[in-house]
Computed example of a mutant assay.
Amino acid sequence: MPTPPTGPHGGPKGNEQTVNEPIPVLLAGDDFVLNRLLVEALHAQSGPSAWEVRELELPWPHVPFGKVAEVDEASGSEDAMIEALAGARVCLTQMAPLTERVLAACPELELFAVSRGGPVNANLAAATEHGVRVTFAPGRNAEATAEHTLALMLAAMRRVPQAQESMRAGRWDSGFYAYQATGLEIAGSTVGLVGGGAIGGRVARALLALGATVLVADPYADPAALPAGARLVSLPELLASSSVVSLHARLTEETAGLIGADELAAMPQGSVLVNCARGGLLDYGALADALAVGHLFAAALDVFDEEPLAADHPLRTAPNVVLSPHLAGASRATARRAATMVAAEAGRWLRGEPPLHCANPAVLKAS
């Protein structure tokens, strides 16, 4: 594929479009990363005259994402994308499917910017074959996810859901002051973080500020990059020493099923397990068992091995569990940050600069 833009609105060399014509761009937003936010971010990057804006509104999150042809976690349809993308050279989206069929039908497309941490809704091999750059937005929800982790952790440790349920039922239950019914404090506790990346690092800083001792298990972490006061240890040491364990690792072949029955048993009696990372890291059946027998004090979960969580899943009735439906990253700041990040990639493309976060870098070598 020729080198991208050579002038203010130039586009790749050899393209028949004149340098002064606006670039056709499709904004395929949804009800989280709104098209309005994408328009604002795009115009802030390059000015409104640079782009011929088209909009497609996808039904997520009101309609769950799923598999579309060969790609996963996508919203909308191939037919809608093919129609909306006709003639467009750039697409900014969060959930739209980029499949082999879409790519074959839209030869003008050169940049597909996905406003999420991983572009699972794009067929990267096919995009590379068709000369389309696919970019993504790592870290867009790091702040929101770190805050949600702390919110769930505190809710589980201080039994906030149980207290609220009692109040809504019309009771004023002073029995929560009974010693066996009281909660746990972060201050003075040892909290183990499995994963010390962007989210884990933010959680570590907050926990240290609250007076916790923080351990981190991450074979790829740079000790110098961890917050001052956090200590890098092995996973077995972390599990044996921590009264709270929070998962922040990426899901890979190496980490799939990282925390199973043996690892839960290695945690101290009366400890707490938190997962706002990926469902595949954890054996949820073993977790339900550990809660049922009272080995764990509580669990706080935003992600699951199967989503949506089945109505008869044992975690729905397990004691002392705080559940949320995979919404740790759901903040208005995340949506605005996501729009800004993909608009910045469009700006780089327009100026002929390399992308900052390219998911298929082989396509750059072919440019």
Rank of each mutant, 00 (worst) to 15 (best):
L184Q: 15
S166M: 13
E147L: 04
H148V: 02
A206Q: 11
S174L: 15
S189C: 14
R168Y: 13
F176R: 05
L193T: 03
A187W: 01
V203L: 04
M153E: 10
A156G: 02
M167A: 08
T190G: 01
T182P: 04
A169W: 14
V160H: 12
Q164T: 08
A144T: 11
G139S: 08
V194Y: 09
R171V: 05
L207N: 02
Y179D: 15
Y177E: 11
L154S: 03
R140V: 14
A155E: 12
G170A: 03
H148F: 07
Q162H: 15
D173R: 13
A155V: 06
T182R: 10
Y179F: 15
T190R: 06
T182G: 09
L184H: 12
L210Q: 02
L193R: 05
Y179A: 15
A155Q: 11
Y179L: 15
L208Y: 02
L210Y: 00
T145L: 08
T190N: 05
G201T: 03
S166E: 15
R202N: 00
A198K: 07
A163D: 06
A178R: 08
A155S: 11
A151M: 11
A198V: 00
A204F: 03
A144Q: 04
G139V: 02
L193K: 04
A206D: 10
G195C: 03
G170Q: 09
A142L: 04
L184W: 09
S189I: 09
L207I: 03
L150C: 10
A155G: 10
A156T: 05
G195H: 06
S166V: 13
I186P: 08
T190Y: 01
R202T: 00
S189R: 15
G197F: 08
G183K: 06
L208R: 00
G211T: 00
Y177P: 01
R140M: 09
R140H: 09
A209F: 01
A146D: 03
G175D: 01
S166T: 14
E185M: 06
A181S: 15
L154Q: 07
G195V: 04
A155M: 14
R168G: 10
M167H: 06
T190I: 03
T182S: 12
M167D: 05
A187F: 01
M153R: 02
N141P: 07
H148R: 06
T190Q: 03
G188N: 07
V191G: 07
T182F: 09
S166R: 12
A156K: 00
L193V: 00
A212L: 01
Q164C: 08
Q180L: 13
R140T: 11
I199F: 04
A144V: 06
V191R: 06
A142I: 02
E185S: 07
A156Y: 08
R171L: 12
A209H: 01
G188S: 00
E185T: 02
A212T: 00
M167E: 04
R158E: 01
R205T: 12
T182D: 13
A169I: 13
L152F: 11
Y177S: 11
T182H: 09
I186R: 06
R140A: 14
G183S: 06
N141D: 14
G197R: 06
L154A: 01
M153H: 07
A144E: 11
A151Q: 05
A142C: 04
T145Q: 13
R202V: 00
T145Y: 09
T182L: 08
Y179E: 15
Y177N: 07
Q164K: 11
A206C: 08
A212I: 02
A209Y: 00
V160K: 10
F176Y: 10
A155W: 10
V203S: 05
A209E: 01
A142K: 09
